[in-house]
Design a binder for these strands. Structure first.
Lengths: 147, 147
DNA sequence: TTAATTAGTTAAGAGCGCTTATCTATAATC
DNA sequence: GATTATAGATAAGCGCTCTTAACTAATTAA
């Protein structure tokens, strides 16, 4: 097999397996936490950081600011988000994860991490080191494209 | 930093960045295709292969057979799934992706693959080779745990 | 200071996706 | 052949999530 073909095949297979797995993980997380896809998405965005308002958050999620406001409402009631006035601009709201909300997402990420860690257990230390190097490169590159 | 700490940190960071990115990808795919999370999940399961019935499919998705039946109904109407009688057991249904359904999911996987491929472009050939090796190992290991 | 803009909320209504309960049809068991 | 079990579809109903439209309040521009 020629090198470029091997390269794209590898990536495609990886994408297939991991997309499939990711769906299962998300579904499980949604069921366990009782949250919708949009809600998890929203919490994730807040976890990822950066000041963000209601409308902008809705924009990222591809929904109207009305829908975002309602979704946030429910998450505030659930105690996962805190919504307070922005002292700089009293029209705007500051959205932050509560301790509980932060812990919830952290747990989700941790669970996913454990799965990967479990995958690598059977490998030799050399292989594990290689995987760590590769994932480090990919993570850095992904962070850069995150704008 | 001690080696084991570095290992778990690498995995956790990777999980964080890629979970975040995966959510965005799924959301975009859902919006573009006009499908719900459950529907994409369902199509993905069929794409992944293996004979599977309505109830079992629902079980995998964590929903009742009634819900699965309804979801399938909509996908059949959309022309993404074919539902035919199983000649072996006429109570059961054979569920298969139509050409259109298959192409839709393949396109989603392809898009994701392109993103990864784009990430690696900036790397040296040696780094790319390492990433390919690492992903190959991870893909194989993940396939094994997929039962 | 008045007018226009911006951030967010609220209200009404539509549709989706889920549940339980009921139903039909086929298959397996006695 | 009669009973029981299984696969799936259908119905009624509930709650969630989205939309558009109208609203309040704060900020910016004229």
């Amino acid at each position: 097999m020629s090198p470029p073909k091997q390269f794209s095949d590898t990536i495609r297979e990886w994408a297939e397996v991991f997309m499939h797995r990711s769906m299962r993980d998300f579904k499980r997380f949604m069921n366990d936490s009782g949250l919708s896809f949009t809600q998890v998405n929203l919490l994730m965005r807040l976890y990822h950081g950066g000041k963000i308002g209601v409308s902008e958050l809705g924009g990222h999620l591809g929904i109207t600011n009305a829908a975002a406001s309602q979704a946030i409402d429910r998450l505030v009631k659930d105690g996962l988000i805190e919504r307070s006035e922005d002292p700089q601009d009293r029209r705007a709201k500051r959205l932050t994860l509560t301790e509980e909300g932060h812990a919830l997402i952290a747990r989700g990420i941790e669970t996913r991490g454990q799965w990967i860690a479990g995958l690598t257990e059977a490998f030799t230390p050399e292989q594990q080191a290689m995987i760590v190097s590769a994932l480090t490169l990919l993570t850095e590159a992904a962070r850069k494209t995150d704008e």
